[in-house]
């Protein structure tokens, strides 16, 4: 691993900015910073958002696991539980439909002049995050740890001896799903 590079704080700030720049550029070029495109996805009429996420998953997954096998990168897995991973994301989803942007695309939408993404999105999401910080002590003790499933991956779940026995079928499954979307004209 590139440990020396990882420890260079200033270069890392620059790399964060640069990777973010291209991420924002691609989100805008993909059209997914537009309210109408995101809502059409949630209404299951336009699958641009799903197509971008799915292709990013296949590409990212194959590359990251190949680099991990080579010893170049390590994984950064998030732990979850029934008390954290069900209610939080459901509230997120409800807000996602009402706002019409997610955190990344709300920032990107401001870039093309969407002022509802600035007032509702950027300011609202900060307010919501601040509210969560205030309520965190109440959730921390009982709700968040309830029904913990740790940082298991799908590979651990099926106890595959070789991670590629899972990676390849997942990639194929997603590719077939995308193919079906194209065939039915979505």
């Amino acid at each position: 691993m590139l440990k020396t590079l990882h420890n260079r704080t200033r270069i890392q700030y620059f790399l964060g900015l640069a990777i973010g720049f291209f991420f924002g550029f691609l989100l805008q070029k993909g059209g997914v910073c537009h309210y109408d495109i995101i809502m059409q996805q949630l209404l299951l009429q336009d699958f641009t958002v799903v197509k971008i996420i799915s292709t990013a998953i296949i590409t990212g997954m194959v590359g990251v696991y190949a680099m991990r096998d080579a010893g170049w990168v390590c994984l950064h897995k998030k732990s979850g539980s029934l008390g954290a991973t069900i209610p939080g994301p459901l509230i997120f989803g409800i807000g996602f439909a009402i706002l019409g942007y997610c955190p990344g695309t709300s920032v990107g939408a401001v870039g093309h002049g969407a002022l509802d993404a600035l007032i509702g999105g950027v300011i609202g999401i900060m307010a919501g995050a601040g509210l969560y910080a205030a309520l965190y002590p109440r959730l921390k003790e009982r709700v968040l740890p309830f029904g913990s499933f740790g940082d298991k991956t799908l590979i651990d779940l099926v106890q595959a001896r070789n991670p590629w026995f899972v990676i390849i079928p997942v990639a194929v499954f997603i590719a077939v799903f995308l193919g079906v979307l194209e065939i039915v004209g979505l």
């Binding site: 209610p87 939080g88 994301p89 459901l90 509230i91 997120f92 989803g93 409800i94 807000g95 996602f96 439909a97 009402i98 706002l99 019409g100 942007y101 997610c102 955190p103 709300s106 509702g120 999105g121 950027v122 300011i123 609202g124 999401i125 900060m126 307010a127 919501g128 995050a129 601040g130 509210l131 969560y132 910080a133 965190y136």
Partner: peptide
């Protein structure tokens, strides 16, 4: 909606 997104994301 934004408040729900921020709250739910965290």
């Amino acid at each position: 909606g934004g408040i729900c997104v921020g709250f739910g994301a965290r």
